[in-house]
């Protein structure tokens, strides 16, 4: 009994990581209806940037965030203005195929720069530290990841609904032409949205790299987990994304408890079940 409870709790905490994968995806879809196939590879890029920072500066991975977050935000802004803005329009093919091409380029560039050997970010004693709560052993690192996810999502929620920048994001999302009439340059606003999304991706990449080993090929899998969290939670609902991540995480740890080979498969099945019975996700955005 306690083992199952443990699996569920571990799954909830794992869900925090998936919510971090998903938050950036959800943000850019919300603002510019862009689905970025390269999102997973950008998470892995952030992990490698974290690796280089820790190695070169000799700092802790969490300190490396101070370098990686602005770097990823900068990459996001340039990527959006230099490339992705040109793909936006009514046709879904250009954004899809361009981000797909970007994914292949990123993957192979990482392979070229860092080889295919698995890497890991070393966070020291925090990796093995744990708290004992009512017979359950909770890892400090998973707890921290989950807390980070909650903080990131609360932060995004605050930016969206309580700041001038968030007002601009929502306005551009509602009606690009009219937003332009109000003096907003949508190319710039989209660039800022991508910068914010990739800053979040930087956090996701570092937390991933501290938790497990990574190599250039695993980006696609991270995209899929993030995507599943978004769809399970319901499009356009950022707290739903956290719930979606948690459901995915719990499904995976329960699957792994039954048979270790089933971990990822069980998550996919949970996603397909939600898609079958609630195609709009469990917590779709309520329109006014």
């Amino acid at each position: 009994m306690i083992e199952w409870l443990n699996a569920i709790v571990q799954g909830v905490l794992l869900g925090g990581l998936y919510a971090l994968f998903a938050a950036g995806l959800s943000l850019i879809f919300g603002v510019m209806r862009l689905v970025n196939i390269a999102h997973g590879d950008l998470i892995i890029l952030a992990a490698y940037l974290g690796l280089s920072t820790t190695v070169m500066l000799g700092v802790h991975p969490f300190v490396a965030l101070l370098v990686v977050m602005p770097a990823m935000a900068g990459i996001g802004y340039v990527l959006q203005r230099g490339l992705l803005n040109q793909t936006l329009g009514t046709d879904i093919l250009p954004p899809l195929l361009v981000t797909f091409g970007l994914s292949v380029i990123l993957q192979n560039a990482l392979l070229e720069g860092y080889t295919a050997d698995p890497q890991k970010l070393s966070a020291g004693s925090i990796e093995t530290a744990s708290l004992s709560v009512g017979g359950l052993s909770l890892g400090v690192l998973p707890l921290l990841t989950f807390a980070m996810a909650v903080a990131v999502i609360a932060g995004l929620q605050w930016i969206f609904y309580a700041t001038a920048l968030g007002r601009q994001f929502r306005a551009v999302s509602d009606n690009q032409d009219i937003a332009q009439l109000m003096g907003l340059n949508k190319a710039h606003v989209f660039g800022l949205a991508m910068a914010l999304a990739l800053a979040v991706t930087a956090i996701a990449g570092i937390m991933l790299g501290v938790r497990t080993s990574f190599d250039p090929s695993i980006g696609g899998g991270r995209l899929i987990f993030g995507f599943e969290a978004v769809i399970i939670g319901g499009l356009g609902n950022i707290w739903g994304t956290l719930a979606g991540g948690v459901i995915l995480g719990v499904a995976q740890t329960i699957g792994a408890k039954i048979d270790p080979g089933w971990q990822v498969l069980a998550g996919h099945i949970a996603f397909l079940v939600v898609l079958a019975i609630r195609p709009n996700g469990l917590f779709p955005r309520v329109e006014h």
């Binding site: 689905v35 196939i37 879904i92 954004p95 899809l96 995209l223 995507f227 996919h268 397909l272 898609l275």
Partner: peptide, 10 residues
């Protein structure tokens, strides 16, 4: 649209 694409991947 694009979500269909990722769904096929899943």
């Amino acid at each position: 649209g694009a979500y269909f694409a990722i769904g096929t991947w899943v």
